[in-house]
Amino acid sequence: MADDAAVQVHSPWERYGWIVQSVWLVFLFFPISAFLGSDQHPISARVLGIGMVVVFAVVYTMGIRRLQRYSSLDPGAALTGPIHLVGLTLIALGTAPIIGSEVLTFLPFIVAFGMFALPLFWGVVTAAVAVVGSGIWAFLIAEGTGLWVIAFITLAVAVMTAGSRFLGEQGAHHDAMSRDLAVVEERERVARDVHDVLGHSLTVVTVKAELAERLLAIDPERARAELADIQILSRQALAEVRATVGGLRVANLSEELAAARGALAGAGIDPDVPTDSAVVDPRHRTVLAWVLREAVTNVVRHSDADACTVTLGPSRLTVADDGRGMEARPEGNGLRGLRERVTAAGGTLTIRTPEAGYGTVLEVRL
């Protein structure tokens, strides 16, 4: 039986990034050289000190690996960094009785680790304390020992790691916002497409059902034909809704022209609709197909018109009816969705009442 556990996919950096970061351990050469040069201590003490440097390197590497492995949602994430940081600090302090002021050579590693192991604020505080402390020790207490180089290295490491941490968090924040925006856009797309699909299909089904009801008594054969059409339209609408939710729905202008003629005729509106969509630029056909669908649906639902004319151009669509006009009604979700589609395609949508004072003209230019 297949394992139901989710398979986690790790990036190469997540797997092997600790190796790149551990390259900096080469600079532990400085404390090692301090132990080797500490002639005033017995060999056993120097060997012990070198062993502590090795332990420091192991704890540093393990800490990096665990920090990369943990997600911010994992229970151990909040404690892993501080625990390893405390361990590194104690190991470094343990070498002080042997190498004295040279213990400062561990600071760049502690600062770098702390910047990523702690929250950004506390990482900066830790780095600031380390930089100020190393500077005071190098320039005031241990003047002339050459430790000023370590103080400057500590400062450089603090600045670089703080900048890297800040940019990394900003990048993560940007990625999260991008994902949220993509989710919102997808929701709007699905809502817009479902509205267009259901609005048109249910309007046509309603018109045909009313027509079939009127024909039952006077023309049963025609009524049965209308009922058969209703079944076909219902199945098509169901398929379109499924395709829309799955992101597969693409409006076809030729099909929408044919559907527009049928919907208008079924509603008792004289249709003047082109039969050929070849005049339209192929780049604009999908957008204009959605516009045509919504516009014709509105004519059937609200216009109370006797005739409707559809005109096509290479980058233009006009739907004009002789009905009662907008009558100062606010735009509904359908028209708002059309504006969003047209604007996203770089076009404009206008709705006006002709000079005759009645009817509505909807025009889209891309």
Rank of each mutant, 00 (worst) to 15 (best):
residue 186 E to I: 02
residue 19 I to G: 04
residue 5 A to S: 15
residue 318 T to W: 13
residue 264 L to P: 09
residue 243 A to R: 07
residue 228 A to Q: 02
residue 181 L to N: 15
residue 296 V to E: 03
residue 154 T to A: 10
residue 173 H to Q: 10
residue 9 V to Q: 14
residue 189 R to V: 11
residue 141 I to W: 08
residue 109 F to T: 01
residue 124 V to E: 10
residue 115 M to A: 13
residue 36 L to Y: 00
residue 161 T to W: 15
residue 37 G to C: 02
residue 108 P to L: 03
residue 82 P to L: 15
residue 62 M to L: 11
residue 261 R to T: 03
residue 124 V to T: 07
residue 200 H to W: 10
residue 75 P to A: 13
residue 234 S to R: 07
residue 193 D to F: 04
residue 339 R to Y: 00
residue 40 Q to E: 01
residue 233 L to R: 13
residue 13 W to D: 06
residue 19 I to V: 14
residue 85 L to R: 04
residue 290 W to S: 01
residue 126 T to I: 00
residue 295 A to P: 06
residue 140 L to W: 05
residue 225 A to R: 07
residue 258 A to G: 05
residue 362 L to Q: 05
residue 245 V to M: 02
residue 278 A to S: 15
residue 59 V to W: 12
residue 209 A to Y: 03
residue 235 R to E: 12
residue 52 M to P: 01
residue 118 L to I: 08
residue 332 G to L: 06
residue 232 I to Q: 10
residue 63 G to V: 08
residue 129 V to I: 13
residue 339 R to N: 01
residue 314 P to Q: 10
residue 313 G to W: 13
residue 220 P to A: 14
residue 234 S to M: 10
residue 71 S to W: 09
residue 90 L to P: 10
residue 192 R to L: 09
residue 190 V to D: 10
residue 330 P to K: 04
residue 163 G to W: 11
residue 12 P to L: 09
residue 18 W to M: 14
residue 45 A to L: 12
residue 254 S to V: 04
residue 258 A to V: 09
residue 104 L to K: 06
residue 52 M to N: 02
residue 99 I to L: 07
residue 241 V to M: 02
residue 285 R to N: 01
residue 357 G to R: 14
residue 130 A to V: 03
residue 131 V to N: 10
residue 194 V to I: 12
residue 317 L to N: 09
residue 226 E to H: 04
residue 82 P to M: 09
residue 138 A to L: 02
residue 240 E to M: 04
residue 256 E to G: 02
residue 275 T to L: 13
residue 293 R to H: 10
residue 18 W to K: 02
residue 126 T to R: 08
residue 171 G to H: 13
residue 147 L to W: 15
residue 104 L to P: 10
residue 258 A to I: 07
residue 341 R to V: 07
residue 121 F to G: 14
residue 355 E to Q: 12
residue 13 W to T: 06
residue 230 I to C: 00
residue 314 P to E: 12
residue 137 W to T: 00
residue 177 M to I: 07
residue 79 L to P: 07
residue 19 I to E: 03
residue 194 V to G: 02
residue 76 G to V: 13
residue 273 V to T: 04
residue 189 R to D: 09
residue 80 T to C: 15
residue 206 T to I: 05
residue 121 F to C: 11
residue 220 P to I: 13
residue 165 R to S: 11
residue 280 V to P: 02
residue 292 L to D: 06
residue 228 A to I: 04
residue 105 T to L: 06
residue 73 L to P: 01
residue 236 Q to Y: 00
residue 255 E to W: 03
residue 3 D to Y: 07
residue 70 Y to T: 07
residue 337 G to W: 12
residue 228 A to V: 00
residue 285 R to K: 09
residue 268 G to M: 07
residue 138 A to F: 12
residue 333 N to F: 01
residue 166 F to H: 06
residue 251 A to F: 15
residue 12 P to D: 03
residue 308 C to A: 08
residue 7 V to L: 15
residue 4 D to F: 15
residue 149 V to T: 11
residue 131 V to C: 03
residue 54 V to L: 12
residue 215 L to C: 00
residue 260 A to I: 03
residue 20 V to A: 12
residue 218 I to P: 01
residue 18 W to H: 08
